[in-house]
Design a binder for these strands. Structure first.
Lengths: 416, 416
DNA sequence: GCACTTTGTTCGGCGCCCGAACAAAGTCTG
DNA sequence: CAGACTTTGTTCGGGCGCCGAACAAAGTGC
């Protein structure tokens, strides 16, 4: 629905905005130019297997759209110097929205993932969906205002939600998790306010997209992104594409059982990962340890998750203990994922990723003792360095991915 | 290497055996005819989106290869009755080899997965690889002899091995597991004896292929096949293709930890799935229970795995207890797989699948208490009914899949 | 019996793409 | 430094896959 709607960019009523590159070859060339940043026609011909004459014609059409431009001359390879063609990163902008459990953040990026503007606000999303709706459009407007560019260049909006998304109707958030967002609420609203296509996906999935394009997983086609924040979720990238599963709930690993004798979980089972790892659990655990660590920086305070992470970075023994315990629990699940999927990499995101090496080192240890196959154990495990903007960035990137796969989504800029 | 070699079918030295359909459209049409079994040119045109004239020309060429043929007239849709075109299932035959830990079996199939011949023999593969090599070729020859058809119609050989296969060089079995098969041994031997391409893959992967084409997972693109026999392995089908992972060891779930206090495993960890489920473990467990079940059919015997399965089917309490325990352990892992991957289906194969409902029912129960998300829990779990031939059949099917994706592999039959 | 449909074939033509040829602009060698 | 050689990018004629129109053959339905 919303994601099907076409961009009604800057009321130009011409029958055809420009020579829209809707053919397969133009799409491939456009993607190649995006990836290589500066590449000659001859090089494109070699990469695609087409002749130089054909590529020359296609590039000519692409130049007309304003999405690519000649950007100077390259090094000679023994003959005439090539004319380099590059992608116009500023030809379009994208809004990315991260709807968390307790906050909303919005990012504005160009077509290279550069941040043009950024806004964040705490908000009780679950209890006040109406306010959340207004907040999203407000923050979006604020970002566009700060950027102060031509608004007709806005291509689309990506939205990350902390719940599974039905693959059949990607604009309909599962009511079970966000009941108030039922039906054609927020997303059609967004569409009608900004008049551009709106895409929705799960937050862990979009975090994985961000890592794949700008973070630790660039160039890796099979990896798993683990988001550890309020809850725990996984984004599974297989063959360069998000794996959603049969009903769209793939990656919901919060309720994988890791200890049959563990504490009871809200889901009715015992020893779920979610009963050990997650903002609420880590904070509770830290507070219960306060008496045992009288020398801790945190002693005498009522620490929040941020304080605990900061303390861990300062090598506070209490905080390190909490992080260590979480790492071991995560390690059990990561080991299972490695044994099952053999990903090329595992990237840890979410707020806990701030702990960096202090989280990764014990986690690697826990994994190493639980994986038989040497190559699986060799899979590298890293923390994300995209920070708190990762998910919003991934939401924006999702729109970019869609546009590169279907260039009609790009605005028909500079038609001359 | 071996899998790259082209079939040197029946010494016809012509520059071009026939109008080999190497173009994309001919490939699509051929696949469509295979799937629909009997379909008119007009219907193909509608399905592919091409014009009737184009399809008519392509079908004409395919008729010349002998891979398809006109098979009669169909129902009228209000006008002239269509001429139905069908796939010639007997145009080629394929050998499938299942190399187990303690046995070798070989199947000969046509292009519809029909069994034309079948041979099986116990053999200590690990300790006598040289004998295994001779046995494979011998059983293969025996199958071809029983079939008694034109040997130039043999298209290829698929081989299933009980170990991971490096995706980079699919003809080189990982030495760690089958050290004696190092380098260019058995497979090049097979290739030079039968003079057809040889394909190799992991047994669980090929079991999944068999289920996808002929078994419980027909039409399902995302599912997981669990093979429970000497060991435990998983074949993961995603988007209709086997998922091998970054280094080809995806699906090696035998050493997923399910109980931190469980018995020690050969891998050095505690409580691996492999310490509970697997032929050796089930037999040991059954024997240790003999004293507690004096009334069991198995009392006073030294039961093997087959006897235990038979006893379970006869509702013997001891055998049921063993199967129950295995089911609960498997359930823990299946629940994890469901939470992580959300497959459309889970199919249980291997010898233990013989237990059928007696295995599935307690397994479903164990899974239901460990999955939060309703749709994940709704994923149906079934046992395979392909029996002991599943893996060999999958190996043969692997060759069929390759040929349908690249029709050059088909023999140039009936060139007139 | 007649109008209408559907199928499968033939045939002219359009469009994508290629290869050859060429001018422009380099590099390398003697 | 001049001339031979390379590489790039463009132009242009042509091949080939595919389409649409037209048609004959063979049905259905009123």
């Amino acid at each position: 629905m919303a994601s099907d709607s076409r961009p009604r960019s800057a009321g130009d009523g011409r029958p055809r905005p420009a020579t829209v590159p809707d053919d397969e070859l133009a799409r491939r060339v456009l993607n190649l130019v995006w990836r290589r940043r500066a590449v000659s026609r001859a090089e494109i011909a070699r990469s695609t297997g087409r002749s130089r004459s054909t590529i020359s014609e296609v590039v000519g059409r692409l130049l007309g759209t304003g999405l690519v431009a000649e950007v100077g001359a390259g090094e000679s390879r023994g003959g005439r110097r090539p004319i380099l063609v590059g992608f116009e990163d500023e030809a379009g902008v994208i809004l990315g929205v991260d709807v968390g459990a307790t906050h909303i953040s919005v990012i504005l990026t160009d077509l290279r993932g550069n941040t043009l503007a950024w806004r964040e606000r705490s908000h009780p999303v679950r209890s006040d969906p109406k306010g959340a709706e207004a907040l999203i459009t407000g923050l979006g407007e604020a970002c566009l205002a700060e950027w102060n560019g031509d608004r007709s260049r806005l291509m689309g909006i990506g939205v990350a939600v902390p719940s599974p998304v039905d693959p059949g109707s990607p604009d309909r958030v599962l009511e079970r998790v966000l009941p108030a967002w039922r039906g054609h609420g927020v997303l059609d609203r967004l569409n009608s306010v900004f008049r551009v296509p709106v895409f929705v996906d799960n937050d862990a999935n979009l975090g994985a997209v961000a890592e794949r394009w700008w973070g630790e997983a660039v160039g890796i086609d099979d990896f798993v992104y683990l988001k550890v924040a309020t809850g725990v979720g996984a984004g599974i990238m297989i063959n360069g594409e998000i794996h959603r599963g049969a009903t769209g709930v793939a990656g919901e690993i919060g309720h994988v059982a890791i200890d049959p004798n563990g504490p009871e979980c809200v889901c009715g089972n015992r020893g779920c990962l979610a009963t050990f790892v997650g903002t609420r659990q880590l904070v509770d655990r830290a507070r219960s340890l306060l008496n045992s660590y009288p020398d801790s920086i945190l002693a005498g305070t009522e620490p929040g998750i941020r304080a605990i992470e900061d303390a861990a970075l300062a090598d506070d023994p209490l905080a390190l203990q909490v992080v260590n315990e979480a790492a071991v629990r995560l390690g059990i699940v990561v080991a299972g994922v490695l044994n099952l999927l053999n990903p090329g990499s595992v990237v840890l995101g979410g707020s806990l990723a701030r702990a960096g090496d202090r989280l990764i080192r014990p986690l690697r240890e826990a994994v190493a003792t639980r994986t038989l196959v040497a190559s699986a154990a060799a899979s590298d495990i890293r923390t994300s360095d995209l920070g708190e903007r990762a998910v919003a960035l991934g939401a924006a990137t999702h729109v970019l991915v869609a546009a590169l796969a279907n260039p009609r989504l790009f605005p028909g800029v500079i038609p001359a």
